[in-house]
Design a protein around this nucleic acid. Structure first.
Length: 437
RNA sequence: UCCUCGGUAGCUCAAUUGGUAGAGUAGGUGGCUGUUAACCACUUGGUUCCUGGUUCGAGUCCAGGCCGGGGAGCCA
């Protein structure tokens, strides 16, 4: 593009070109006409700008065409950049020419005025991405991912990605998507954690970042069947170490987004003061303390069970920042969770609940590192030992205390953006009964 | 799987006790040299989700189905 069109400028960079004649390449997203002057608004992915076209500035034919140019026409506009406080973005383009690459073959389906229903928008996700709010959310997501990579890179973690196809149900808890794998069955991964434990024994500090699949028939604003998760795992680490890591991690993501995506948060009308208060250390409470808080709030909850979504919401509303809830009853947790030596009824695990009803964004803990205890746990959960031989090898050959966690990208982005539903926080959401486009 | 709400113009919605389906917006035509979701005037546009039933008459009532939203369970 730049070689063919040496003077094409990104809309975002237009303030640096005031007084110059430039070209922009983009799409028409709105148009108004005052009769002898057209106001044409363009976006190019980097930003949005208004072009002014007076009747005498271009040919009669082009002026007439621009009065009817359909939304989402792809164009190259030539014009002089000027600063003008009447322009929505502070600068505008005095158009001297406009080349139309293509006029839409039919009317653009997404209305720019009315609030459109989720079904229509999801069926047009490929076009919905062009809308400013969606554009802003996905740019925040991009920054969250960059912040994650930076955070672990700076701390000497090695990115060791886990497989997507797995031979067995890792934890034996949730429903997995089954696929044909030549002559056998395989499953789409629900977690890379077990593989990260192997990676931690090889690299000391490792993490994976990739898609995760859950075949649960969940229809809520917090669920997707395909979502992205980042899972760090650290050798010679205990529960406290991993809680320290988790709060530093989340704080650094928030700081990075506040620093690099201010404009997007403005588009989303996000109250950033709530995010600015997020800084490590976060409050830490035990499961038992959490139960007391629920009871004090008048919510009936019996010690021993796992928290439901309404319980989590009530807990997170009790705090302004994310809160770490640790040491759940081991009975409700997976077989690989290490039990608390001070009370074997509880597991050395931790969940991080984000504020403002965003829900659980992190789940993790210290892993069982004793071979005999792990074997007993596998048996107790009714899981086939053969499938976990490789995993038990990690305890046979130089086992060490280790811990890690998983952070859900979409829930994190939803919290940061103040978005009601996680489906807007992934480019092409996969949900119950929805796999198009 | 269960609970709950909904489906009317391209989109967002209205339609009284069961009595000729209507508005905003988008599209079209005309007007306007600084619009900010521009505005003003006129105008095109309908398998009221589907099937069956009740009725002189159904968008409306009944039965079954389809599709979707939110929530529970499960989890990030």
């Amino acid at each position: 593009m730049s070689e063919k069109n040496p003077n094409i400028v990104a809309i975002r960079a237009l303030p640096e070109h005031v007084g110059e004649e430039v070209r922009i390449a983009g799409w028409l997203f709105n148009r108004r006409s005052k009769g002898k002057i057209h106001f044409l608004q363009f976006r190019d992915g980097s930003g949005r700008v208004q072009a002014i076209m007076g009747k005498g500035d271009v040919s009669e034919e082009l002026f007439e065409r621009c009065a009817h140019l359909p939304y989402e026409s792809s164009v190259i506009v030539t014009g002089t950049v000027s600063a003008d406080e009447r322009a929505p973005s502070g600068v505008e383009l005095k158009a001297s020419n406009l080349d139309v690459l293509q006029e839409p073959t039919s009317e653009y389906p997404i209305s720019k005025t009315s609030d459109i229903g989720p079904d229509f928008l999801l069926r047009h996700r490929h076009l919905w991405l062009r809308q400013s709010k969606q554009h802003a959310i996905l740019r925040v997501r991009d920054a969250v991912i960059t912040a994650i990579r930076n955070f672990f890179g700076e701390r000497d973690f090695v990115c060791v990605d886990a497989p997507i196809f797995t031979p067995n149900a890792c934890e034996g808890t949730t429903n997995l998507f089954e696929v044909e794998y030549f002559d056998e069955k395989a499953y789409l991964t629900q977690s890379g954690q077990l593989y990260m434990e192997a990676a931690a024994m090889a690299f000391g500090k490792a993490y994976c970042f990739g898609p995760t699949f859950r075949a649960e028939k969940s229809k809520t604003r917090r669920h997707l069947t395909e979502f992205w998760m980042v899972e760090p795992e650290v050798a010679f680490a205990d529960l406290d170490d991993i809680m320290d890591l988790a709060e530093d991690f989340v704080s650094s993501i928030i700081q990075y987004v506040l620093e690099h995506r201010r404009a997007e948060l403005d588009v989303l009308e996000r109250d950033t003061s709530l995010l600015e208060r997020v800084a490590a250390p976060f409050p830490r409470i035990s499961y038992s303390e959490a139960v007391s808080i629920l009871n004090e709030k008048g919510i009936e909850f019996e010690e021993g069970g796992d928290f439901g979504a309404p319980d989590e919401t009530a807990l997170s509303e009790h705090f302004e920042s994310p809160v770490l809830v640790h040491r759940y009853p081991s009975a409700v947790k997976a077989f690989y969770m290490k039990r608390d030596p001070e009370d074997e009824n509880y597991a050395l695990c931790v969940d991080m609940l984000a504020p403002e009803g965003a829900g659980e964004i992190i789940g993790g803990g210290q892993r069982e590192d004793d071979l005999q205890v792990l074997e007993a746990g596998i048996d107790k959960h009714g899981l086939p030992r053969e499938a976990f031989e490789w995993y038990m090898d990690l305890r046979r050959y130089g086992t060490v205390p280790h811990a890690g966690f998983g952070l859900g990208i979409e829930r994190t982005v939803a919290w940061i953006c103040g978005t009601e539903h996680v489906r807007e926080c992934i480019p092409f959401p996969r949900m119950l009964y929805r796999i198009y486009p």
